[in-house]
């Protein structure tokens, strides 16, 4: 039991590559738990400040364009589908189809970041910077509006970093796929990255209504 049919060897401390795969996915799930807990800190901050300053959040959300947010939601949901499809194609041994889907996923990630860039630019243009750099004091109704934008930039910024990380990881598995390192019985890395990507998607699904659709 040192090798399996696909021709890949497994590390010496596992019984089989299936055993190794299970352990790997277990690890990824645990990692996702830590990610959720990390974001939960921000969600708690959101809940507290929303409780204290509901009017600030109401004013803040009007500066955000829900159409761009919705567009990004659709992009990410679609990319989750293509990510899942690429894993499916690897399992049925269709590396080419899998590769196309991976590339579409990266493209979606890029699209998401471009939309984010446009949104950020619009905020900066109006002086809606986070914290100290906030300069739009004259036009606003509530004096703690900067706090809303601090939250907005922290939450979407941290999420954006995750999108970029996810794109990098998908690029990495795409390269490995091209080298022929994955097969129907050996795709732990792709599945792990896929799970990560779904989480990034899931977090956005929470961020979108919380920030863009406050009322």
């Amino acid at each position: 039991m040192s090798t399996v049919s696909s021709g890949h060897t497994h590390a010496h401390h596992f019984e089989s590559s299936q055993h190794e795969h299970k352990a790997g996915i277990h690890g990824v799930w645990l990692f996702l738990v830590t990610e959720i807990l990390m974001f939960s800190g921000l969600f708690v901050a959101y809940a507290i400040f929303k409780g204290v300053y509901p009017e600030v959040f109401h004013e803040g959300h009007r500066y955000l364009d829900w159409r761009l947010g919705a567009l990004n939601t659709v992009i990410l949901l679609f990319s989750s589908l293509t990510m899942a499809l690429s894993i499916h194609y690897i399992r049925v041994n269709k590396p080419k189809a899998a590769m196309i889907n991976l590339l579409i996923t990266i493209a979606c990630g890029l699209g998401f970041m471009i939309v984010k860039y446009i949104e950020y630019n619009a905020k900066f243009h109006h002086g809606l910077y986070p914290g100290h750099f906030f300069t739009a004091h004259e036009h606003i109704e509530h004096k703690n509006l900067a706090l809303f934008f601090s939250l907005y930039f922290c939450m979407t910024g941290l999420h954006g970093i995750h999108v970029l990380t996810g794109m990098g990881l998908i690029g990495w598995v795409a390269i490995r796929l091209k080298k022929g390192e994955f097969g129907p019985h050996h795709y732990t890395a792709v599945e792990g990255v896929g799970l990560f990507w779904h989480l990034v998607d899931l977090i956005w699904i929470y961020l979108f209504p919380l920030l863009y659709l406050v009322s």
């Binding site: 914290g131 100290h132 750099f133 900067a146 706090l147 601090s150 930039f153 922290c154």
Partner: peptide, 8 residues
């Protein structure tokens, strides 16, 4: 908080 002064 220190670098951007986010204010939390």
């Amino acid at each position: 908080e220190r670098t951007l002064g986010i204010g939390f």
